[in-house]
Design a protein around this nucleic acid. Structure first.
Lengths: 186, 186
DNA sequence: GAAGGCATGTAATGAGTTACATGATTAT
DNA sequence: ATAATCATGTAACTCATTACATGCCTTC
């Protein structure tokens, strides 16, 4: 029950367990379908973090007797209180857009047309695909989400579109003719 | 000179030192003004990582004799080769948008109008400010950047606007009149 | 010539990733 | 009944963050 500063990981776990208890594997599933779209937590983190939160008194767990000895976590009152405290406190920290493609662009030599164009094409496709995927998700499962969850997905769509457009325009700006080496559309 | 997988941090350092040698402090400055806008590396990382890169043969360093014993790093041929290899290799991994505000929204109870509205207002301001700041930066120092660097900044502006708009619309959707300090709904 | 801040670095701790390991379940 | 895959967890390692420590330079 030692004090420690909670991280975004902690709140992702607390928030996910609020409302329904679950095992680490459940967390992997629930978070994988939702939060992981914008903030990735590795599988192992979702095993470590609940253990820490239990140690801190924000969760309790029961371990299955037989077989796999699955551990199911439940949020405590203290956990719920901490979650709500966090929800109401001012939000510090700025948005990081950790995008490997963007990092590459930063160091790219615009003179190297082919390399930049290849990067731009890849990124455009990847982000357009993601935008489409989210849009589909939004249409199919929005009804199962809370309005707030649907809203985050909406932002996800907007951002992917913004990024896809950016690469698309960058590509156009390169004066790229359909490129000999590896083109798609006419 | 042991092999190891390089991380984005590694490439940020290699890329920044390509063209001009520098100390860790120089890295802090150069990266702080540019890359840190979308991908933050802590001060200590920029001391640790060059040491690792030297160990791996991608950098060499000379240490000042007197006083502070400053260590200046220079990229090696191997380092440059690795940087270029990376620049030309396909880019895996998807964009993470690590935004504490967004994480909060995900768990927010839309019924709690005041809390959501407060969050939305804060975020809208913060992102609008950032968009303005980047725009200013772009106008004033774009000429000092490579076109690729200016392009990343351009994306930064677009993203911040997208996010600011999102919060703005969310706020409007809550049926919020201009707000006297903290009201509830009619 | 003392105070305050910028420059420079390290140590301790904590978090995150990768790799490994194995138990259940399903499909063939 | 075997292979394949899903579910579950831990261990080892690498990275990142925070805190600390101190040197140097400016300014008053």
């Amino acid at each position: 029950m030692s004090a420690r500063k909670l991280t975004p990981t902690s709140y992702a776990v607390l928030g996910t367990l609020d409302g329904a208890p679950g095992t680490s594997y459940d967390l992997v599933q629930r978070i994988g379908l939702t939060i992981a779209n914008f903030w990735i937590f590795s599988h192992a983190q979702l095993y470590d973090e609940p253990a820490r939160l239990e140690e801190a008194g924000y969760l309790t767990s029961v371990t299955e007797e037989g077989g796999r000895r699955r551990r199911t976590y439940t949020i405590t009152e203290a956990g719920r209180a901490e979650l709500h405290r966090w929800l109401h406190e001012p939000t510090p920290g700025h948005t990081e857009v950790r995008d490997p493609g963007l990092l590459k662009l930063f160091f790219a030599d615009m003179g190297d047309r082919t390399a930049v164009a290849a990067l731009a094409r890849d990124q455009r496709e990847a982000h357009a695909d993601r935008a489409a995927m989210y849009t589909h998700l939004h249409r199919t499962v929005a009804s199962l989400m809370t309005p707030a969850q649907a809203a985050t997905l909406d932002l996800g769509i907007r951002m992917e579109r913004t990024i896809a457009d950016f690469w698309d325009e960058l590509l156009a700006g390169l004066g790229t003719r359909p490129d000999p080496a590896s083109e798609r559309d006419p």
